[in-house]
Design a binder for these strands. Structure first.
Length: 793
RNA sequence: GGGAGCAUAGCUCAGUUGGUUUAGAGCAUCUGCCUUACAAGCAGAGGGUCCGCGGUUCGAACCCGUGUGCUCCCACCA
């Protein structure tokens, strides 16, 4: 089913990847792809060359890399003697058969010896230096081939010398290219020995192997057989052993296309996120770029626009009509092959291939284009920038801003889009590239159909809600890192939804209880005023952080900031601070401000949880606009002092709550507090909040009052607490001693630094000043704690 | 085999050009609370040889070298 859809879409010229539909495409896109192919061909950037493919001899078809399964098996190495070709006639007469006159070569595939075109040793291998300039005779077919030397050969493997069979091994093929050796394909498509093999023609390759071994044995040329562990590729379709096979393919020259694409990234014109992780990969690929094989032997896809006449002459054109015109003009078609490649492809290959015309008609090349050959034009042709250049849309939308994609296609897609952009628009296609991670399961495995570990998103949405699923995925996807999918983060999202509803519920309860009298409005207490000032600044600070993180594409961290801003700062602190006492009204101004803050929070969260935020936005207040289109207001100027006072207040509340907790003082039991401080300036505005949050019926300032039951140290202040209940002082002392111990240790580490001459000489002045301040603060605190300890004893 | 990257709390990760405390967050765990929005909650606590080793530096989670383990991409039948 998937294949049918895939092929249908591809026939329409749509580029599809199994895991993501890249785009849907109209006829104009199809035309654009053809146009670009012809253009590149005319520029001399497209050529025909040779390439190894994986061939399934049973199914008689080419296999993609994914269709080849590698298995560890025990293979056999056959050690075969090759005789040195005589240098002079005298040699034949003398000792032509002495051991010195033979070279032993190890091979797994003796049936390929008929395709040998050379033997090769490592240039640093002393054993074989004497072979320089010599030739050897291939056994059974008695053909002379040269001895060559290349670093590729490992001295320690086999006998340290190997046979070069370019038609049947990728390494041999590459060496063949390097040394301009011919290619002799000794296999037919069905895996039988071809005419070029000369002997055992028509026999299956494995039958031929046995017969060749027997023949070699008979002649005394097989020294030994040795078992060794190796890996073999098997066809996923037929389970037969995959045969590397030489084939003629279409290529795009990449060097000139890659250079501008590399420059755009190295000059930061295009920014990759996360930078350190992927720019290295990108650069490596482009600096070592290999020509791009764009032809595929599939029965679906966009056919290559090349036609052949009966003489085998090739015409590349956008349409068959155009090709016919070229044929009529009898223009002498220059060879599209690079000289290097054409030297390699032998006569037999060209004749035997499909390109031979069968009638006087033109025959179209049956190969189709690589998926990515259409995909790389995507940023341009979706706006018809190729089929209809300089139109309104392409001028408006190109270049676009951000490409979001997977790291696995950095080279396949991203790099090539940049290349196409630079070549055809003379401008980058996008300014930023953001790579998402791969979704993996809890165990770190890739999501796959065969493992069945892909989550059913629709089911999860039913279970947790759409926003919760979005939240769960966003919160656990740090930029560029893989995402380990775990339902616990969705649960967190679900709870967050609930929290938002409850905050709404609270605010809605206040709505019916707003005081409207002038007196109450003008006497908003200092606590409420401080709460507002503080939250405004807290909001501004968080928005600045979020802005920065979004610019850096750190989406999960931005969400974490927003999550904590809403849950902790807004719900746990602000709402508690302004919450009216039971049965009392809320000042109109406070209520309205609270709604404004809530609006802003929803707006921040909206990109992550669009549904619930939009819903609450409309439930909060009658309004005509929608959150999804609402624009952000400018971030107000930050007043740090307010934030500091807020932290101070939170510290006080936390410390007193903690003391209550530790001493089993229930919240209902009121306490009275006396604060001993050197600086009481900001306490005035904090008092109303503090007294309510810790249930203190009285707060005074001064030194230690009698009847003190609890003593704590917060910052540089000492807090004395009086309760009705008797409190065990041992625990308090223990705690104070612990703090003292920590601070003393801390002080020692600072003293060590400051008494180190080299530190004082070398460190920056601001670092030294900082250390001195740390020391000063610690000393004050130690003194405060000492006094508290004394007073307790 | 070639290349890239990762290793910090039980788990997932922050840690911004080396100094902002004796390393932080969320989740999980533990303790105490049905306190008038929320037990899907509130208030707290515990938890780390920053993978091992060596080096540079006054100073290293951060820089360099090396070892180990893991992940990804490309390649792969002498």
């Amino acid at each position: 089913y998937g294949n049918i859809i895939y092929s249908q879409i591809r026939r329409l010229g749509c580029s599809v990847d199994w895991d993501r539909v890249t785009f849907t495409m109209d006829d104009h896109y199809y035309q654009a792809v053809i146009k670009i192919f012809v253009d590149l061909y005319n520029k001399g950037l497209v050529y025909r060359g040779a390439r190894m493919i994986n061939w399934d001899t049973a199914a008689q078809t080419a296999l993609s890399d994914e269709e080849v399964e590698y298995k560890d098996v025990t293979g056999k190495l056959y050690f075969i003697k090759y005789k040195l070709a005589p240098l002079a006639i005298s040699e034949i007469e003398n000792d032509g058969n002495s051991e010195d006159n033979f070279v032993t070569i190890a091979t797994q595939r003796p049936e390929t010896i008929m395709g040998d075109v050379a033997i090769c040793a490592n240039p640093n291998d002393d054993r074989y230096t004497k072979l320089k300039g010599r030739k050897v005779i291939v056994p059974l077919i008695n053909k002379e081939v040269p001895v060559i030397f290349d670093d590729y050969v490992e001295k320690d493997f086999g006998t340290g010398i190997l046979k070069i069979t370019p038609a049947h091994d990728i390494h041999d093929f590459n060496i063949g290219l390097k040394y301009h050796l011919p290619v002799i394909d000794t296999l037919n498509n069905d895996g039988t020995i071809s005419e070029a093999g000369q002997i055992f023609v028509g026999e299956d390759r494995f039958t031929a192997r046995k017969k060749i071994i027997a023949a070699l044995k008979e002649k005394g040329l097989l020294i030994k057989e040795e078992e060794y562990p190796t890996r073999l590729g098997y066809s996923q379709r037929s389970q037969s052993i995959v045969e590397p096979k030489i084939s003629t393919q279409w290529f795009v020259k990449m060097k000139d296309l890659a250079t501008p694409a590399l420059d755009e990234v190295t000059s930061d014109n295009i920014r990759i996120h996360p930078k350190d992780k992927f720019t290295a990969t990108y650069k490596y690929w482009l600096e070592n770029v290999k020509d791009w094989c764009i032809s595929r032997q599939l029965w679906w896809g966009q056919q290559i626009p090349a036609w052949y006449d009966e003489e085998g002459k090739m015409y590349v054109a956008e349409t068959e009509e155009e090709a016919r015109k070229q044929q009529g003009a009898q223009s002498s078609e220059p060879s599209a092959m690079s000289s290097e490649q054409s030297a390699v492809i032998n006569e037999q290959l060209a004749q035997g291939s499909k390109i031979k015309a069968q009638s006087s008609k033109l025959t179209r090349d049956e190969d189709v284009l690589d998926t990515w050959f259409s995909s790389w034009l995507w940023p341009i042709e979706v706006f018809k920038g190729i089929s209809n250049p300089d139109n309104k849309e392409i001028n408006y939308y190109y270049p676009t801003s951000v490409l979001v994609t997977g790291q696995d296609i950095i080279f396949f897609w991203v790099a090539r889009m940049i290349m196409a952009g630079m070549e055809y628009m003379k401008e980058k296609p996008f300014a930023d590239v953001y790579f998402t991670g791969m979704v993996r399961d809890k165990l770190g495995r890739k999501m796959s159909k065969s493992l069945g570990n892909s989550p059913d998103l629709l089911n999860l949405i039913d279970q947790y809600g759409a926003d919760a699923v979005r939240f769960g995925i966003m919160i656990s996807s740090p930029a560029g890192n893989d995402l380990l999918f775990d339902e616990s983060s969705l649960e967190q999202g679900k709870f967050f939804n609930n929290k938002l509803w409850n905050a709404l519920k609270l605010v809605k309860m206040w709505e019916g209880n707003i005081s409207t009298s002038d007196i109450e409005q003008t006497t908003i207490n200092e606590g409420n005023q401080f709460a507002q000032k503080w939250f405004e600044n807290r909001l501004a600070a968080a928005r600045m952080e979020v802005d920065l993180l979004m610019q850096q594409f750190k989406l999960s961290e931005a969400l974490k900031i927003i999550y904590s801003l809403i849950w902790d700062d807004f719900c746990s602190w602000y709402l508690e601070w302004v919450k009216p006492e039971f049965g009392k009204t809320i000042a109109k101004e406070v209520f309205e401000k609270t709604i404004d803050y809530f609006d802003e929070l929803l707006q921040l969260l909206h990109p992550f949880m669009p549904f619930i935020t939009e819903e609450i936005y409309h439930l909060l207040k009658e309004r005509t606009d929608d959150l999804t289109v609402k624009q952000f207001q400018e971030i107000p100027y930050l007043i740090n002092v307010v934030l500091q006072s807020g932290s101070h207040l939170k510290e006080l509340i936390t410390a007193i709550r903690d003391a209550r907790n530790k001493n089993n003082l229930k919240f209902k039991e009121a306490i009275s507090i006396c604060i001993e401080t050197n600086d009481s300036t900001d306490f005035d505005q904090l008092m109303p909040i503090l007294s309510r949050q810790v249930n203190a019926d009285a707060i005074t300032f001064g030194s230690k009052p009698i009847n003190t039951t609890l003593t704590l140290v917060v910052g540089n202040d000492t807090i004395y607490i009086r309760t009705e209940k008797e409190i065990d002082t041992a625990e308090q002392l223990d705690r104070l001693h612990k703090d003292l111990q920590y601070l003393n240790g801390f002080l020692i580490s600072i003293d060590k630094k400051l008494s180190n001459d080299k530190f004082v000489q070398n460190a920056k002045p601001e670092i030294i000043a900082l250390e001195k301040k740390k020391k000063y603060d610690a000393e004050i605190k130690i003194e405060t704690i000492r006094q508290s300890i004394d007073s307790l004893q």
